[in-house]
């Protein structure tokens, strides 16, 4: 770092200032995020129910043990997993197709791209209200109309196929996210590489399998891991579309935490579930960081 030759004390002080102007921001982040999480952890070892005030004991890991002994809770973890994996698989396949289709010059490409990213921009609660009422309503919805075109009877989607309906709705919303990242990846692939490969006689499929897919690897990993992190937190869509039902068929971890905390006022059990949600997210974050690090290495190697 270049310093003024005639470094005075005030200049040195300013150097110090330059280094430490990030401190207040980091401090505020600690207050807003780490302290609440520390409290979550603390509450999770107690039995605190707001409906029974003044009766708080330290009960160790009993909230966690009970959670894993409860088949309903295991079902909720399973729902969370099914939702995440299904959405990721669907959005990956559809997002890849859209990215490949958009990665060629044609008239109206800008419009197509703009239309395709729009579902991601729509407020999730609006998406949920829209799909629930206007598209999936068994009596008047669009889905019923399309079924009737083929002479099929109406289906009450949210009553009989609640989880698939929620999955399709969330996949509609998240496909643009995957598409945008894969498209950025495709556009970073040098045209000359593709040309050389097709001159060597590679056809469409082998071009995709041996040139495009390996190049996209990091982009795919980043897109899918980021997506999982967001999908693990899905709340509004479930709240609006199914309220976790029928029964607990579509209840995921965030929705269960909401029910535990704000419907049953069981602060401690909600906190224990919250800790599990953080653990789950951290596993994904660790995978994500590994991808970023390996990308850094391959870049510095190049």
């Amino acid at each position: 770092m270049t310093q003024n030759v005639t470094a005075t004390t005030s200049a040195t002080r300013e150097q110090q200032l330059r280094k430490f102007i990030s401190a207040p921001t980091l401090l505020i982040l600690i207050i807003i995020t780490q302290i609440p999480f520390a409290f979550t952890l603390y509450y999770s070892f107690q039995n605190w129910n707001l409906l029974r005030p003044g009766n708080i004991n330290w009960i160790g890991v009993r909230n966690y043990v009970r959670a894993f002994e409860n088949p309903d809770f295991l079902r909720i973890l399973w729902n969370t997993l099914v939702l995440s994996v299904s959405v990721v698989v669907i959005t990956f396949v559809v997002g890849m197709i859209f990215a490949l289709l958009l990665n060629r010059p044609f008239l109206g490409r800008g419009i197509a791209r703009t239309l395709l990213i729009s579902p991601f921009l729509v407020m999730p609660v609006v998406t949920a209200v829209l799909w629930k009422n206007v598209l999936l309503n068994p009596a008047f919805g669009m889905a019923t109309y399309f079924l009737s075109l083929f002479g099929l009877p109406p289906i009450d989607w949210l009553a009989h196929y609640a989880m698939p309906s929620v999955i399709v709705t969330i996949a509609w919303q998240w496909t643009p996210f995957v598409m945008l990242i894969l498209l950025a990846g495709l556009q970073s692939l040098p045209e000359s590489t593709l040309e050389a490969a097709s001159l060597d006689g590679a056809n469409g499929f082998s071009l995709f399998r041996y040139i495009i897919l390996p190049h996209l690897r990091t982009f795919i990993e980043i897109a899918l891991l980021m997506e999982v992190l967001f999908i693990l937190n899905i709340f509004g869509e479930i709240f609006v579309m199914t309220s976790g039902g029928p029964g607990i068929d579509t209840t995921n971890l965030p929705f269960e935490i909401y029910k535990e905390a704000f419907l049953r006022w069981n602060v401690s059990r909600a906190a224990a579930f919250g800790v599990l949600a953080v653990v789950l997210a951290n596993i994904v974050v660790l995978l994500f960081l590994r991808v970023l690090r390996s990308e850094d290495q391959s870049q510095s190697a190049a």
């Binding site: 982040l29 807003i32 995020t33 780490q34 302290i35 609440p36 999480f37 409290f39 979550t40 509450y43 992190l229 693990l232 937190n233 709340f235 971890l253 965030p254 935490i257 909401y258 905390a261 602060v267 909600a270 906190a271 579930f273 919250g274 800790v275 949600a277 953080v278 789950l280 997210a281 951290n282 994904v284 974050v285």
Partner: peptide
């Protein structure tokens, strides 16, 4: 980055 990825449901109670 990890603070950004902290699940909201993990801190909502406190």
């Amino acid at each position: 980055m990890s603070t950004r990825m902290l699940p909201p449901a993990g801190v909502i109670v406190p």
